[in-house]
Amino acid sequence: MKTFVEKHIVELLKAGDDRAMGLLYDHYADALYGIAIKVTHDEELAQDVLQESFVKIWKNAHKYDVKKARLFTWLFRVVQNTAIDKVRSRQRKQSKEVQTDSSNVYHLKTTSLAIEHIDVKDHTESLEPKYKEVIDALFFQGMTQQEASDELNIPLGTVKSRLKIGLRELRKVFGGFIIILSTML
């Protein structure tokens, strides 16, 4: 269900009205920042990712097709791809350097979970780990299904079925929260 805010943001984006970016930030920045952190495991890099993603969103707003995906799905893909690119680019750079300092190793700084999402987080934790690890590998680590299969040491078919079931299980996990979340965004 598309919320009024989502519709309004899309209208502003399509009209090239920069008020869209303020609204977009206020309603989606925390979620998108969370995705960026989950992919990069680095707050500083995640901030760069968010900044770069917003520029991409602003520049490519005309390409967004409301019929093909929800606004969040599109935003998610932009941030996901930007974050994966950033991580890969940093990996390439670091592989050329001699790692003598521990600062070269990814580390997650202290992060504060957005207060309004804490309840949702609790529900997510109730998703079975076997589904969660597949979803995380595919959506947050930028792995292909084959890569996930290799990384998690499970057959490709199992990756596919766990992804399918996991995404559907999320429905059960969130249950009534969907309605509440829809009104929040």
Partner: peptide, 28 residues
């Protein structure tokens, strides 16, 4: 599926640093 993904992603939401909003909007 989209709603599920959205909710799942939101569950990992992290509060952005206060100064980031100005930085991001300034850049756009």
């Amino acid at each position: 599926l989209q709603e599920n993904l959205e909710n799942y992603a939101i569950s990992y939401a992290v509060q952005t640093p206060k100064e980031l909003r100005t930085k991001v909007l300034k850049q756009t």
